[in-house]
């Protein structure tokens, strides 16, 4: 199975999936990895490719599991009757090395999160005898977005548009500031004329309403300027990537 040009096999799939499951507890993570390992075991070597095609990319699997967790799923079906996660060991070796090491494998003890973390830390380090690991390390790196470059024309367009947007936002902000100033003056005048209660209440009413309108106008100007300027430069960075 080709994933963006990279051929993926069982150890790579499981190792990459294990790296994406960091937001789960160690017990659930071990149980999930054991479940998927069992699925690969059931599929066998012949069905391995078809199973990888069916599951999709490890990232997609991890996203689906994350959504299940957010929906309230505790993955209890993965644990045995005793409520313990099955044994699982991160697969990074080739099938031949796994077959040679199998009599000596001790497996991962339930609750051995530290040992599993240590294994992962060791497995993450580049080793000479794990050729697929280089591809595994390259696969996550390929997922990361490449550095983006801006094209000159788009930059000029973005700057000109930003000037217009900022000028428009400044006008709205000035009107809002004027309203806030008027609100302050009205409220101060109301405090000075408390002897005439009705006049003071009218002044307070005008001041409070103007204050609310002014605050809304000022914040709208700030939000509009930031949002529009950001959007002006975002398509520029996306187009510049292909240049």
């Amino acid at each position: 199975m080709f994933q963006g040009g990279l051929e993926m096999n069982r150890p790579q799939f499981l190792a990459e999936l294990n790296q994406y499951l960091t937001f789960f507890t160690p017990e659930v993570r071990t149980a999930i990895m054991a479940s998927y390992t069992q699925r690969f075991d059931d599929a066998g070597e012949e069905g391995e490719g078809g199973l990888i095609v069916e599951l999709g990319t490890p990232m997609r699997v991890a996203i689906g599991l994350k959504r299940r967790q957010e929906a309230g799923d505790d993955f209890s079906e993965l644990f045995d009757a005793a409520g313990e996660a099955p044994d699982y060991r991160v697969e990074t070796e080739t099938p031949e090395s796994l077959a040679q090491e199998q009599p000596d494998e001790t497996g991962c003890e339930p609750g051995g999160a530290d040992e599993l973390s240590d294994d992962l830390a060791a497995d993450d380090a580049p080793t000479d005898d794990a050729a697929p690991e280089t591809d595994t390390q390259a696969a996550p790196a390929a997922v990361q977005p490449a550095p983006r470059k801006l094209s000159g024309g788009r930059i000029v367009g973005g700057v000109l548009g930003s000037i217009v947007v900022v000028a428009f936002a400044l006008c709205i902000a000035a009107a809002g500031a004027l309203c806030l100033t008027a609100a302050g003056c009205f409220i101060m005048a109301g405090l000075k004329t408390l002897l005439t209660l009705t006049d003071a209440l009218y002044l307070f009413a005008g001041g409070l309403v103007l204050g609310g309108v002014g605050l809304l106008a000022v914040w709208f100007a700030i939000w509009a300027a930031v949002s529009l300027v950001t959007k002006l430069f975002r398509p520029a960075s996306a187009d510049g990537q292909g240049v």
Binding site: L197, T198, D199, L201, Y202, F204, A205, G206, G207, L208, V209, G211, G212, V213, L215, L216
Partner: peptide, 23 residues
């Protein structure tokens, strides 16, 4: 904040109006 300010302002205006005040 805006809603609270506007409601308070309208309340003050209504109170002044019902107290017999003239804008």
């Amino acid at each position: 904040i805006v809603i609270v300010l506007c409601v308070a302002g309208v309340a003050c205006g209504a109170a002044a109006y019902f107290m017999g005040g003239q804008p």
